[in-house]
Nucleic acid binder design. Structure first.
Lengths: 223, 223
DNA sequence: CAACTATACCGTTAAAACACCCTTTTCTTT
DNA sequence: AAAGAAAAGGGTGTTTTAACGGTATAGTTG
C-alpha cells in the first residue's frame, strides 16, 4: 500500500498501439516532474502481462481504446478486477457517450479525447492521483444525463460483436446470417436489440456507432 | 534553392490536431540528428499561413488527414500548388486504397499509417529528402494495382461531400434530399455515382468509406 | 420445481434502398 | 455554333430493411 504524498513520483503505465504517440507521450510525461513512465505496451494483453511481472505496480494506467489483441474496454475490465487500486485513464480518439459511460461506469478514473492539450493531461493525471478522478464537462454531462439506462447491456457478447463487425460491410442481413450460420430471423433480432439499446433506427447508424466507439476497426474481410 | 548535402539539417513542418502526438513527434524528430522541426500547426490552414510567413520554407511537411478547418487532402493540394519543391509526408490513421491513391497521385512523397514505428519514420524522412519518395509495400501495391481508374474523380465536389456527410446518420435518402433542397432523384443519382466510383453496393459501405478515409469525421448533427 | 432470463427463431406488412434506363438543362470546350 | 460533359430530375420494378407482435428451448437461480 502506497502513501500518497504531494512530492511522490506518480508511476505510470501506457498501452497504445501507435508507437510515435506512445514514445511521444513517454517523453512528455517524463519531462513533467511528478510523473515517471515505467511500463509501455503495444496492446492491452501486453500491458497486463507486464503489470503482472512488475514488482512495483503502477499508480495509473493510460489506455487507448482501439488496440489489437485486447482493446481498451476489456483491458480496463481486467485491470479493475485484478488490481482495483490502480487508477485508469482512458485516452482515445473515441470520445462519445457510449465510450464515456461504459469506461467510467467500469471504473475508469478519467476519460479524455486524444485532442486534449498537454496542460490538461498533466492536470488530469495529478488530480486522478490525488482525488481519484478527473471528469471533463462532457463526462460530467453524460454521467448525469445519459440515454443508456441499463449499463450492464453496454457490453456486447461474442455473437453481437461478430454481427456488428459484419454489419460494417456490403453484406445484406441474409448474407450475414449465412456467414454466422444462424437464421435470418435471429440476425433480425440482434439488429432490433441493438437498435433499442443504442436508440438508433438504421444500419447506417449502426455502422457509425461501431466505428466511432472503436468496437469495430478493420473492414470486415469478405470471406 | 537548397543544395542537398548528407549532413544538412532537414527542416520539417508538422500539421496535426492532436497536441500530444504533435509534441511527441517534435521531441522525437528533434532527437534525430538530421532533422529539425521549425513549424507546427493544429490544422492545414494554420500550417499554410505559417509557411507563407516563414523566411526559410521547410523541406518536408508531415500532414495528418483528418483535421478541423482544412483537412490533409486539401492542404496537400495547396502546398503542391504554391510550393512544388516542398515534399509532403502523409501520416494518418487513415491508410487505405482511397487515401493512398489520392494523396500520392496528388504529389505526396510518402504515405504512412500512424502505427509506423519510429525507425521506419526516420528512414522514410531521410529517403524522402534524398530520393524524393518513400513508398511502403502497400503503397507500391496500390500504385500498380488500384481499382480507381479515373483518379480525377476521387475528389468530391461540395454536394457530394455534403451528401456523404448526411449519409452518416439515421436519415433516409428522402430526408437527405429535403435537407439539401434537392429532388430525391438527384440524391439517388449521387448515390449511384458514388457506388460506381467506389465499387460498392450499399449505404453501409458508403458510411464505412466516409469514416475510414476521413472524408467524414463528426456525426452529422441532426438539424 | 417454478420463475426468470437469455438465446434462437418465426410471420406479416410497409417503407426504404437499390438497379436500370432515360430526359432536360446548363455550362464548357472546340 | 456544334459537340460534349456535368448536374438535376425522372419512371419502374425488385430486393432489403425495419417495425410489430409473437413462440420454443435451454440454462440459472431462488
Amino acid at each position: 500500500m502506497v502513501t500518497v504524498s504531494p512530492n511522490k513520483i506518480i508511476r505510470i503505465a501506457i498501452a497504445d498501439d501507435i508507437p510515435i504517440l506512445r514514445k511521444g507521450l513517454i517523453l512528455l510525461l517524463n519531462s513533467y516532474k511528478p510523473c515517471g513512465v515505467d511500463i509501455e505496451a503495444n496492446n492491452g494483453q501486453e500491458l497486463i502481462n507486464k503489470i503482472k511481472l512488475a514488482e512495483n505496480k503502477p499508480d495509473i494506467c493510460i489506455l487507448d481504446i482501439s488496440m489489437p489483441v485486447m482493446d481498451g474496454y476489456e483491458t480496463l475490465s481486467v485491470i479493475k478486477q485484478c488490481w482495483p487500486n490502480i487508477k485508469v485513464v482512458i485516452l482515445s480518439v473515441h470520445y462519445n457517450e457510449y465510450t464515456i459511460i461504459r469506461t467510467v461506469r467500469e471504473g475508469a478514473s478519467c476519460c479524455l479525447p486524444k485532442e486534449v492539450d498537454t496542460d490538461e493531461l498533466f492536470t488530469a493525471i495529478k488530480q486522478v492521483h490525488n482525488k481519484g478522478y478527473y471528469h471533463t464537462e462532457l463526462v460530467k454531462h453524460y454521467l448525469t444525463n445519459s440515454m443508456y439506462e441499463d449499463v450492464r447491456k453496454l457490453k456486447l457478447n461474442k455473437n453481437e460483436q461478430e454481427f456488428l463487425r459484419l454489419c460494417c460491410s456490403d453484406m445484406s442481413y441474409k448474407q450475414i446470417a449465412l456467414q454466422m450460420e444462424l437464421s435470418p430471423r435471429t440476425i433480425d433480432g440482434y439488429r432490433d436489440d441493438l437498435f433499442l439499446k443504442l436508440n438508433i433506427k438504421s444500419r447506417s447508424a449502426l455502422v457509425m456507432f461501431a466505428l466511432q466507439t472503436g468496437l469495430v476497426t478493420s473492414p470486415s474481410e469478405k470471406a
